[in-house]
Design a protein around this nucleic acid. Structure first.
Lengths: 369, 369
DNA sequence: GTGAAAGCGCTAACAA
DNA sequence: TTGTTAGCGCTTTCAC
């Protein structure tokens, strides 16, 4: 392990040339059986593992795809790091936890990004690509994503994670898919969902089936996804002849502290509306938490809805009415696009829009909490 | 994008040598300000992204770590693939789902491997490594893992995913951590948990606090983790002076069909024991499902317990009593070991054992279902 | 402060 | 069928 064996070592040991070693691994059928056997034997005895790095360099392709995502994990749970025990440490004690509440204690994992990533993993496997994943924060984001871009044949990024100039820079080198953004006239490929139609359908449901009249939209319009959702909301409200909120209530990004502020503002301000239509599930879950703290019954006194369809929405009580994105399918589609782009580099960028699905659960009043 | 720009292109454009270009990116302080500016400008106008591949080759290190895991994802949900709509496709309809049961419908994601992977991701980020992930099946496993091994500086694998001869082969090239296996006298590093103590404590709880006398162990002894858990179970039963089952009841690996067979066997065989101590949460969840189908009340007529602490155990009713592994911490520890090995290649392999935690919930009778 | 040149480990013509 | 050889894009002494 000190000096990693190379083709040269194997060739020498087997008494052949390096080309023959290479052939033995890439096109085994082209070398004589006896040669192959001796090369394989030499490789085995040496512990030879071909360097995909060098191969990629020579061949012009790395055979890997990259995925760059949010850094929402960072700083999660350093507190829980405990000094690890050494094996054999006498009497490694076992702690016992007697209370473990499903609701509050449950982390939101898997989130939207996790489920999309899962789809990407599936896609890569199916297409025979390795997957390189990374995430960064504002500070080092550009550096990290550029690093990854330098390692792969194609890259997928979540929206809002990479400055667009960095992205367009990268896309001159390799194909890039940006998730959840409409196609500008840019050189990027896109995978989106129908945010407008989804949010419109959900809002219509609140109005038509539950007879709600006074609806407010909660969430920051800091992404095109969110903006489109607000448009869908407005359009449904307008079509019903109701008063159309000009602006959303500030969101909380899933942060419970900020959700409490939001709820306090709503309560002290114009009073409670009939429904709070949240821009994401994470916003909605935080808002529901804050409402519970404020003793406001959901859905009886106010309906709450989300958007995304993350797993946690099925777990909370009341269960969360939402619009589900086909997250895994989005991930697979990303890979399909990238592979296709690799095969046809000259073709113009593509944009695929996937359908969404309204999921009616407890928080809108459809089912018993 | 057709011809990816290289150092040569940048050097030419900036009117400097390739060494200067390289220096500009690696040691910016060593080039004159004006030179750096012109190189950066050239790089920008060309869309230059350094090839980490080539750098790795020249430098001898890739700066990436690898994680190889189960292929439990494969073949998951191809059925749900729908023809994607093209953007602008008029009236992308929105389906509405009115029933969405939390229990049955919920996928088990995130599983044990997902949570460990999360820890690995965190660790990589903290240590400045990229992460390459992959998984394979029996058929192509060796090829896939070798491919990954050829791309990274260090590799982590889940137990039972890679034949040990392949692993020891790889470990001659790069440091390898195998999860959840005790240290043999091998050249691999290991991260384990205290399976014996955990299962012993859980079993004691059933005996002492719930007064259960007739306990059976459910699960295949096909891994050292599982074997250790069985040992812990036996040891607690023996210490209590109860009859010690010589062999476990065959497990089901989380498969509901096979769980039904297991439950049918138990019912038709010696009759229902007081408790079914399952080797993993997935086994336990499947067994609970099968028991529910057979109208056997848990925990009233039989207690059921698991091992791992996956998220799904908090969601099912009754909630699952189990032993929680510190999965995220295991992932972080894996990275720590790998990085350390890279820094001190001559040191002997290490083994870290992490503590576990008994989590008392509904399925043993501790809380209301 | 900058350039020339020798590799890093492998692939793929082209020759033999 | 196998060997020779010229790169792939970058880093890194060592001169200048």
């Amino acid at each position: 392990m000190l000096k990693r064996p190379t083709v040269y070592d194997v060739a020498e040991r087997a008494g052949v040339s390096i080309a023959t070693v290479s052939f033995t691994f890439r096109k085994p059928e082209r070398v004589k059986d006896s040669t192959r056997d001796s090369v394989l034997a030499a490789a085995r005895s040496l512990g030879y593992v071909p360097s995909a790095n060098a191969r990629g360099l020579a061949h012009g392709r790395t055979g890997a795809l990259g995925l760059y995502s949010f850094d929402y994990l960072l700083g999660t749970s350093d507190a829980e790091i405990v000094a690890p025990r050494v094996r054999g440490d006498a009497g490694s004690e076992v702690a016992t936890l007697e209370r473990d509440d499903a609701n509050g204690n449950l982390r939101l994992f898997p989130l939207y990004v996790d489920e999309v990533q899962r789809g990407v993993e599936l896609g890569c496997r199916r297409r025979g690509f390795a997957l390189m994943i990374g995430a960064g924060c504002e500070a080092n984001g550009a550096a990290v994503v550029t690093d990854i871009a330098g390692r792969v044949d194609g890259l997928a990024v979540f929206p809002g994670t990479v400055p667009s100039d960095v992205l367009s820079h990268i896309s001159r080198r390799i194909p890039v898919v940006e998730l959840s953004k409409p196609s500008h006239d840019d050189e990027l490929n896109h995978v989106t969902v129908d945010n407008v139609a989804g949010m419109r359908a959900l809002t219509e449901h609140l109005i038509v089936d539950h007879g709600l009249r006074d609806l407010q939209f909660v969430g920051a319009l800091d992404s095109s996804d969110n903006t489109a959702r607000f448009k869908g909301f407005q359009s449904a409200v307008r079509a019903a002849g109701l008063r159309v909120p000009r602006r959303p209530i500030a969101g909380c990004g899933g942060d419970i502290q900020r959700a409490e502020v939001v709820v306090a503002d709503v309560l002290s301000g114009g009073g409670l509306p009939d429904g709070l239509v949240c821009v994401t599930d994470q916003d909605a879950l935080a808002v529901m938490d804050a409402l519970a703290d404020a003793r406001v019954a959901v859905p009886r006194r106010v309906a709450v809805t989300g958007f995304d369809g993350i797993a946690a929405g099925r777990i909370v009580r009341p269960t969360l009415t939402t619009v589900r994105q086909p997250m895994e399918q989005m991930g697979r589609t990303v890979v399909d696009i990238l592979v296709d782009r690799l095969a046809h580099p000259a073709d113009p960028p593509v944009s695929r829009q996937l359908p969404v699905q309204v999921v009616l659960r407890g928080s809108c009043g459809c089912r018993q909490p």
